[in-house]
Design a protein around this nucleic acid. Sequence first.
RNA 1: GCCCCGUUAGUCUAGCGGUCAGGACACGGCCCUCUCAAGGCUGGGACAGGAGUUCAAUUCUCCUACGGGGCACCA
Length: 540
Amino acid sequence: MPIPVNRTPVRVRIAPSPTGDPHVGTAYIGLFNAAFARHHGGQFILRIEDTDQKRSTRQSEEAIYRSLRWIGLQWDEGPDVGGACGPYRQSERGAIYREHTQRLLDNRTAYRCFCTAERLDHMRAAQRAAKLTPRYDGFCRDLDPKEGARRAQAGEEHVVRLRMDQDGETFVPDALRGTVVYDNRQMDDQVLLKSDGLPTYHLANVVDDHLMAITHVIRAEEWLNSTPKHLALYAAFGWEAPVFVHMPLLRNADKSKISKRKNPTSLEFYQRAGILPEAMLNFLMLMGYSRKDDAGADLEKFPFDAFVSDLDLCRVSLGGPVFDLKKLDWLNGLYLRAMPPAELAERELAFLREDDRQASIAQLVQERVTSLGDYFDHAGTFYAGLCDAGLQARYFLIGCCSKKKNAVQLDRARSKLFFEDAIARLEAAPTWQPEPIEAALRAAIEAAGVLVGDGMMAIRVAISGRTASPPLYESITALGRSVSLVRLRAAAGLLGEERMLQDALAAAEAEVDATRRALQVAADAAQAKPVAPTSTLAEA
RNA sequence: GCCCCGUUAGUCUAGCGGUCAGGACACGGCCCUCUCAAGGCUGGGACAGGAGUUCAAUUCUCCUACGGGGCACCA
């Protein structure tokens, strides 16, 4: 059963919220939306959902544009490119939401609620204690609308809630799952307009999708459970609802929803790690989807255009795909190897040239460099993603490799806590500059009660993969926030693994053994043949 | 706790009543080779469990288990 197309042109959108780093999940959903639009000759819209004033930032918004452009997704309408249905930034559509809220107030499908946060907190606590689904108890539901309007007029702080049906069932048609049935008694009277006058996601999303003539809502599965609310909103406005397609969630190796704690989620990380955008996009196409060649074998490497031309969303598989970095690396290598050497060289140079950390990296490496070529030996770590810290992992056990007599050693669990604390402090740093970074690290070290040198060494190894590196704070600054945090999280993750200590020590021993063996072989060789065989070079 | 979604090897997937359960990453072996990659060949490895429907279930239905998501004045 194909995805129904009830209206044309097909119009789809992604609506990322600009809070934090541009997310790989945004690119994933964006990819399927963009491809679906292209497949049907429709439009793909980028809308910025910045109704959360506390968390939204302009830098994050800019970063989203950069990363989506990097990966090769193009939108037909958006805040930066304009379009007929603007503005495309929800913070600029306040009047539209207020007007629409009034319509719902007028037709009684919504009501004003004057309950305080404290009352709601108590209510939910009581419901939880009674093992009930926490939901609004309807205290203001039957308030006289005139009374509500009067109190609102008087400036009393309040929100607007959607009046949901209290019994019966809601049928949610999902293009991939069939009809999902919800008991209306589970549904909450969702807040539509917050007390700051801005809409919640639910309201803004429905109003904008309608006004922007969105025909298909292709979004992540985490939204499935709120679709009944959205359907109720479409009904309240008397609008036709779009077709809903809920995509599976990208997962960590442990199958939980992909998160920065357990995976690099920032697109910027992949860009800096030297992943080609086309490989990244291709890899995302493989998540929950597959194409076959004539022999019936799965295709792995194919371009966006091919993906578009035979895209059939119904074939998306619903099991949450684990984001496997190993396979991404392999695919990336496939692309790299398929290039004409001249193109690879050009891409390589462009990769370096376009990196905005260039100057600061050069400054750090400069003091150590002996030739232009030698530069790469020192700078290499800045152009990689995860560094191979495996051999040095023993340094993550804080103090265990310390040569100092008064060293304080931390066990695995405590070392992990130290890393997590350091990460939290770095994340909270006001700016990504040497001073706040140093302050954060020193604070973490002091809290852990270990020697400064030992703590810094652990961080150094996690950051650079080596025990010798340019100055740490400057290196972290130059490396950049996204990559630095990923590497530190990787170190913390390693400490969380049972076998980490054994592996690290085994690796260390292997290292020593290998050296010893090499020396032995050399010594044996010298013994066996004290006189070097004919050395033509020497004689010549 | 309640509700919803899902479940083919460690991972990504094909399969839409009868297949030797196909491909890919990863892993092992062999070949190629000055090394390392790459490449070629090759090996091990999967239908979560239980009922039912059927001549026949990986495939359809139900139950259980497990995994995930949701239950905000966050999206």
